[in-house]
């Protein structure tokens, strides 16, 4: 028999207190897209549904100290509509256009998207290439978790049972261009088969720095640091982009599931990486 409680904290202290008290049994609900599916399917039968959707402390999209700070309860649509985001990080707005569909974008949050530690969370590669930080809070204080340390294993993140994600911090890049490419099984809403994000700082076609992240090709969303190293310092052309991109297949460990085979995921990762790099360079048709 299902047995749920509902609690709407009035402020952050109340939220942190109940999270500290109930730990995993406190199920945070901002948009609710995943949680409500688990309840309907019966895989989740009890707990306290902690409604953070309208908690002022988790709202707000602002620029602060060179960072874009996004409250954990901000929806994808509000992030896309934010003038600050448009001005400071249009890459984020553009990339979120492929997130689920317009209805789901109206309720989903970035924090909710990454909180489950899913390898196909569409915002994960974005946050990775942007060197983002996840701000977690508990009754004992706050800590900033570099996104590189955030994902631990399949379905597991660095967030402790008594912690709550309160803010996503993204350093506003001074230079460079980004591109996010997602391969799904249809054009409308679909889970990613593979997704690739690239942030490229180039001088002409010369690579000063590059950050590459992928989703759907390992138990975690991951940075392809070896491939990045290969790209760094190279003068790029259509041909060597494709060759360099192949390196990424050595850094990933895709599996075969109903959405795609491991071999395809691997090979198409390199293709998507090439595409993303070319687009960053303005080479794509």
């Amino acid at each position: 028999m299902k047995n749920f409680k509902y609690f709407r904290p009035k402020n952050l202290d109340e939220l942190l207190a109940i999270k500290n008290e109930l730990k995993e049994e406190a199920r945070l609900l901002a948009g609710g897209s995943n949680l409500l599916v688990y309840i309907k399917e019966g895989s989740l039968k009890s707990g306290t549904l902690v409604d953070i959707g309208s908690l002022a402390a988790l709202k707000g999209i602002r620029e602060k100290d060179g960072y874009l700070e996004i409250g954990a309860a901000e929806t994808i649509i509000d992030i896309m509509a934010s003038p600050v985001v448009s001005e400071k990080l249009p890459f984020l707005r553009e990339s979120l256009r492929v997130f689920a569909n317009p209805l789901i974008r109206n309720i989903s949050t970035v924090a909710g998207n990454i909180a489950e530690g899913s390898p196909i969370a569409d915002t994960a590669p974005l946050l990775l290439v942007l060197n983002s930080e996840v701000v977690a809070a508990s009754i004992t204080g706050r800590r900033n978790i570099p996104i590189d340390d955030f994902f631990i294993s399949l379905g597991k993140t660095e967030i402790k049972a008594n912690e709550v994600i309160i803010t996503i911090r993204i350093p506003i890049p001074e230079t460079g261009r980004g591109k996010f490419v997602k391969l799904g099984l249809r054009k409308g809403t679909s889970c990613s088969v593979v997704s690739v994000a690239v942030w490229l700082i180039a001088n002409g076609r010369g690579v000063e720095d590059i950050r590459i992240a992928l989703g759907g090709v390992a138990p975690l969303p991951l940075r392809a640091v070896k491939t990045e190293a290969l790209f760094r310092g190279k003068i790029l052309n259509e041909h060597n982009i494709g060759e360099l991109a192949l390196e990424v297949t050595n850094e990933i460990t895709p599996i075969t599931d109903v959405r795609g085979g491991a071999a395809y995921r691997s090979e198409v990762s390199a293709a998507l990486l090439s595409k993303a790099v070319r687009e960053c360079l303005g080479m794509e048709e």
Partner: peptide, 11 residues
């Protein structure tokens, strides 16, 4: 209906 995919308006 998120694994069994039917065409959306974008497809």
């Amino acid at each position: 209906l998120h694994e069994y995919l039917v065409p959306t308006s974008k497809d």
